[in-house]
């Protein structure tokens, strides 16, 4: 324990009203493993910063105190796979959809054809998947912050987060790594919860110069399940059937699902911003085809939540440049 702010650790789990942490679904107060406690008690600092980043960090008046990390492994019980007869049904909720979530249905234009004919289809947001993801991500994040708080750190810079599936076990690992820092003569952040950012080095310096204080790393997952109806199935599989157009045709159901999943991810992230700005956002989309035009589309959006603490200073406009190398 390096200074008096360590007591703030008690409050670390309590993030609801601080307006500082950005991640929903706070995890339980973690009991750090013994190895972590031993490592954290060492007096020498460790940091994941490169030399230029380290130099820039000192320049800003930040002292690295420790390399901190947080983990969480989540198991997926039910992920939207399953047979077509279950379409629209979630094992976790009573009805076909949670209030306020996205859902769209498609009716077959053909009338009764056969029992196998997919006479209706649905695009459905999977809030149970999104919530589980937010819980895993949030817990790993909280654990990293707890390690940082245990060091009396004010913030965590150069955060690296990794979300990876552990092969074939139906589980996902959330892993955070960052360098905990203290601000020279700086105040303890509200609620004792350290701020965090993906940035380090000169990029962090520029952010500060520009008047953007990092608040938290923010991420959200949106998941949409596509239960294809006959037309979507024909178009995506290229099967010839009556009613399928002969020329190129917009696959409306799939296109809409793709738009929706991205809009949902932005909505989830915006809910965590509380009026702050998000910089350097990255958007990753993974679409997994299940069968016969059915798919699950997951969209992850992450970025740096920053708060404006002063107005922009003007910068010089760019000029075309020539490098003599």
């Amino acid at each position: 324990m390096t200074d008096g702010t360590a007591g703030a650790a008690d409050k670390a789990g309590d993030t609801g009203d601080t307006g500082v942490t950005g991640v929903a679904g706070a995890g339980p107060p973690a009991d750090l493993p013994e190895a972590a406690v031993r490592r954290l008690e060492s007096t020498a600092f460790s940091s994941g910063l490169s030399v230029p980043d380290f130099a820039a960090c000192l320049d800003l008046g930040l002292q690295p105190v420790a390399l901190v990390q947080g983990f969480c492994v989540m198991q997926w019980g039910w992920y939207g796979q399953g047979s077509g007869y279950m379409r629209g049904m979630s094992p976790y909720v009573g009805g076909p959809q949670v209030a306020g979530s996205y859902s769209e249905t498609y009716r077959c234009p053909h009338g009764f054809v056969s029992n196998e004919h997919r006479s209706w289809g649905q695009n459905l947001e999977q809030p149970w998947v999104e919530d589980a993801w937010a819980q895993g991500y949030g817990s790993a994040y909280q654990r990293m912050l707890e390690e940082a708080t245990a060091h009396g750190a004010h913030g965590v810079i150069g955060v690296v987060d990794r979300v990876s599936s552990i092969a074939d076990t139906g589980t996902t690992e959330f892993h955070f790594l960052g360098t905990a820092v203290t601000v020279d003569d700086g105040p303890t952040p509200a609620g004792g919860v350290p701020w965090s950012t993906y940035l380090a080095g000169q990029r962090l310096t520029k952010s500060i110069e520009a008047g953007f204080m990092p608040v938290a790393v923010v991420a959200a997952l949106a998941s949409v399940r596509v239960w294809a109806y006959c037309m979507t199935e024909y178009l995506m599989e290229g099967s010839m059937s009556w009613g399928s157009p002969t020329g190129p045709h917009l696959v409306e159901q799939v296109s809409k699902a793709h738009m929706a999943v991205r809009q949902l991810a932005r909505k989830h992230v915006r809910q965590q911003l509380a009026g702050d700005e998000l910089h350097g956002a990255t958007i990753d989309v993974v679409a997994r085809e299940l069968s016969q035009g059915d798919e699950v589309i997951d969209c992850t959006l992450r970025g740096n939540r920053v708060r404006r603490f002063k107005d922009f200073d003007p910068v010089e406009l760019p000029r075309p440049t020539v490098r003599l190398v």
């Binding site: 008046g61 601000v183 608040v215």
Partner: peptide, 9 residues
């Protein structure tokens, strides 16, 4: 400036 930013939080 860094200090100013930190205080804002």
């Amino acid at each position: 400036e860094m200090l100013l930013g930190a205080r804002s939080l």
